[in-house]
């Protein structure tokens, strides 16, 4: 049902308008001397709150080992299809047995990424994290596709509670071997 918005009649000063303009100018004049609300960006930076979703990165475990096993769940879940993984098998390394699989190439197209964090949420190996970095710039489109080396460089090392592959190794050494 249509309804009529009742407007209250204008007062004399409102109809003359000039006093209203003067009142407005008082406000703008006060703003003129008020301190700035903006931040002068490259020198001043905002404090990043915990849980911030910045640039997605790949992390290593505290022993510096690759955590990603290229299960491609992040590639699957990524809404803008920014992630592209080429899976491959990895050689057995003494500190990293049973993993078998790892990414040969891992590209995140930051021109597509929407920072939704679903990749971090879905990762069964806790290998991908959206960390604090929020600025990205480059001269070409190719520069803004983070490859595996770049992703590990950005990601660094994060603590890990699980050490899933270590447990497998321990079981093998414990003597449950057939």
């Amino acid at each position: 049902m249509p309804y009529v918005v009742e407007r209250k009649p204008l007062t004399l000063s409102e109809r003359i308008y000039l006093p209203q303009i003067l009142a407005g100018m008082r406000v703008t004049l006060r703003r003129l001397f008020a301190p700035n609300v903006t931040m002068e960006y490259p020198e001043q930076r905002p404090a990043i709150p915990t849980g911030y979703r910045g640039v997605p990165t790949l992390v290593k475990d505290p022993h510096g080992r690759e955590k990603c096993v290229s299960c491609q769940l992040c590639e699957f879940v990524c809404p803008p299809k920014a992630i592209r993984i080429t899976p491959g098998s990895v050689e057995d390394q003494p500190d990293r047995t049973h993993v078998e699989k790892g990414p040969q190439a891992f590209d995140i197209d930051m021109l597509r990424c929407i920072y939704c964090g679903l990749c971090q949420e879905v990762c069964p190996e806790e290998a991908i994290f959206l960390q604090n970095q929020y600025t990205l710039s480059g001269y070409t489109r190719a520069e803004l596709v983070n490859d595996k080396a770049k992703l590990y460089e950005l990601g660094g090392t994060l603590p890990d509670q699980h050490f899933k592959w270590d447990k497998k190794k321990a079981a093998a050494e414990h003597g449950n071997t057939h």
Binding site: H174, N176, H178
Partner: peptide, 9 residues
Amino acid sequence: EQKNVKPKR
């Protein structure tokens, strides 16, 4: 307990 370990690959 610990899981069985059998030949892989």
